[in-house]
Design a protein around this nucleic acid. Sequence first.
DNA 1: AAATGACAAGATAACGTTATCCGAGGTTAA
DNA 2: TTAACCTCGGATAACGTTATCTTGTCATTT
Lengths: 344, 344
Amino acid sequence: MSRTPKLSDVAQHAGVSVPTVSRVLREVRNVDPELKDRVLLSVKALGYQPNRLAKSLREQRTGIIGYLSAGDIATFHHILAQGIQNAALDHGYAVVTGHGSTLEREMMYAKIFSGYQVDGLVVIPSSTGDPYLEELAQQIPVVEVDRTFGAYSRHSVLLDNRSAVAGAVDHLVALGHRQIGLIYGNIPVSTEVERKEGFVDRMQHHGFPLRPEHLISDGFSEEGGVRAAHQLLQLGEPVTAVVVTTNEMLAGVVRAIRSLGLSIPRDLSLIGMDDTRWVQMMEPPLTVMAQPAYEMGYEAGRLLIRSIQDQDHEEAFPRVRRLPAQLIIRQSTAPPREVPSMST
Amino acid sequence: MSRTPKLSDVAQHAGVSVPTVSRVLREVRNVDPELKDRVLLSVKALGYQPNRLAKSLREQRTGIIGYLSAGDIATFHHILAQGIQNAALDHGYAVVTGHGSTLEREMMYAKIFSGYQVDGLVVIPSSTGDPYLEELAQQIPVVEVDRTFGAYSRHSVLLDNRSAVAGAVDHLVALGHRQIGLIYGNIPVSTEVERKEGFVDRMQHHGFPLRPEHLISDGFSEEGGVRAAHQLLQLGEPVTAVVVTTNEMLAGVVRAIRSLGLSIPRDLSLIGMDDTRWVQMMEPPLTVMAQPAYEMGYEAGRLLIRSIQDQDHEEAFPRVRRLPAQLIIRQSTAPPREVPSMST
DNA sequence: AAATGACAAGATAACGTTATCCGAGGTTAA
DNA sequence: TTAACCTCGGATAACGTTATCTTGTCATTT
């Protein structure tokens, strides 16, 4: 965790005074093009990033605005955020938030947070290979939550995805299902990879032959769910149950099932992910693997803060923390229409 | 917007040196009880609050952690937050978030934000009479969004609640409904007050006699919705349509309707609030008044930043900005079973 | 009783910026 | 040609804290 360069470092490197560097960067007064070039070169060479704290203190304005919400919170990610907030509050930290569903935005926020000299960062990564995030992680502790793209290279708080899916499979198997399909997202994020592997493993554990055409992967979205469901349900040898790994795709699967005129759970049993309100309100209410969103957030926050506070014996605690999902059994799962004779 | 006192002000007031005040407040070394008392008295007298910026700069740690989310966002408040985030980002501001559903937490966050010297605050107030928030509002611009408890004493970005409900009433009237009930939350927040008034006004505008027993108010929650719906639907002269003012209560109303064995829209038409996913996924999908959540958030952020940037001609722009709701007509509204003869 | 140490209060420096002040050099005008 | 100005670079001060250094007082020890 090296020291970040400051204005005086740049000034020295470029052979000019500190105010000159400041003036160049803020473009606030004319400076000799020659000096200007030297400064900009030095800035780039040293990778200088301004310290917002000092700037704010001097300028008497922070460029931070507060957002105080009394609203309800319902989705997985929002509840998770709430967990982080509370962990921070309990330990005397404040949270500055950013939402970056694209790599570009993620990089932007990583840069901004770095500027504000945050002590640490909890991140739900949007993809792999964010250079700013990597750089930031050299300087401050970073904890990944919910998912990871790398090889668990950082502290992370994740769902025990394999067990979650195994529980879903077990439940279906106990009901008598043998032909079980899986619909999952086709991006290389840990959640999808692990859920798929967990499914395959558990099916093999039960000794059921796995048909590749029963594993359908499509985009992460609701539309992906629709497409995947159509593909899966129009097979010659159809499945009697489906497990869906994301809430988003689940909505698409439900739509597709309805448009095909199939009845849940009479024609098809269904297990989804995330205990959201719509899952509870729809007819029939769905059996789902519920993620402990709040706990995941709180744990991530706590882990981060602990990591901040003893940066010396860093390696003393585990890098990956797994939290269990809970299978909530509702009315979308039932025995298949005709229970096949036990073959194994 | 007066200057907040600093350590040296306290020191002068108490007749001691600056470091002594610092030591008293941080309880970091023994100080003469006599001096200590004087310091604490002065702190209270002047209402001193430490400047986190200076502290952070000196201590080389901020006590801020970042939270970078790549998750999806779905509920009203989360989408609204996203709007604020983006407005901030577009104007070079950062957002530090707090979630305070109780007065106590709201006060806590107001204090924290104040300590971080935020330039302004967007707030969904959790109730009226938060002294810290009041004090903060003396010093920096505060914009209320979604709702207000006071008499629009601040800049605020609100839904055009009256028009929203009027639109819902008009739609039902056009379908032939005459006996229309309203279920709303019984707290004195602007959203509820205005929606109720908008309902009453519009019904009177159409010349329909308003039966007090058709206006049911209960707690803000799903359970409140259940209770209110039971009360409304077990009247001697039942309604043929119901308008519900909050998404939370709406879920309760739907549950109650189901438990009473009534069919939507055959037995009862239903219009709710907020175009959430469950509303779209349930059977039948509900007709709702959709709030422009993102736009409300963005507008609040923009208004706040404008307000920060010209604190001189503050009064130049309107204090209350209303955004229109959009009535999304789905399958929960239909003509009443027997259309009564047009009486007016 | 003088010397040593413990303690606490104030003075001073430092965190990393930006704003203000000062002076050297060049340009313009009378 | 010299005085007045303008321009731009560097030195210095300031933002509000906390850490370090200095000094003075009082208690303890031999």
